[in-house]
């Protein structure tokens, strides 16, 4: 039996993350998944239309010129970049690396990821644009 009433802190289940900038940063990082998911749905739609044929694909490309599609893709891009930077910034914790017995400095691990990101992005754009 409890001798006294335990203290229970009242915490909102839906708005707790508004209480501290650190919690807001956490939520910003986690909600990137919503936009990665939505963009992936657009990409699947694109592949599906490509398989349907020339006309369906042309419709898809024409749609990307619309104001709402441009707006959507800018929002997707902003959140995708937030995902990339937050993901890379925790890589030293998620997969610490060693050279011999020496731990690799955090900056080296993070820097290597950023360098790889730039190379992949530039190459992809160059290949896509011929």
């Amino acid at each position: 039996m409890m001798g006294r009433k335990p203290y229970i802190r009242e915490v909102s289940k839906t708005t707790w993350w508004l209480k501290h900038p650190r919690y807001m940063n956490y939520m910003l990082r986690e909600v990137t998944s919503l936009f990665i998911g939505l963009y992936t749905a657009v990409a699947i739609d694109g592949v599906w239309r490509l398989q349907q044929g020339r006309e369906a694909w042309e419709h898809f490309i024409a749609w990307t010129f619309s104001t709402e599609a441009v707006f959507m893709h800018i929002v997707f891009l902003v959140f995708a970049v937030i995902h990339t930077t937050t993901w890379f910034n925790v890589t030293p914790k998620a997969m610490p690396m060693h050279v011999g017995d020496e731990p690799l400095p955090d900056a080296a691990i993070i820097g290597a990821h950023y360098a790889g990101w730039v190379v992949v992005s530039v190459l992809a754009l160059l290949i896509a644009g011929k």
Partner: peptide, 25 residues
């Protein structure tokens, strides 16, 4: 996603309307 989603969004959604790459590409 961290490595390729941003550039994918650029290629399939923004590069053509913003004339970064040609429509023929």
């Amino acid at each position: 996603s961290a490595f390729v989603t941003p550039v994918m969004i650029l290629i399939t959604g923004l590069a053509v309307p913003f004339h970064l790459i040609s429509r023929e590409a």
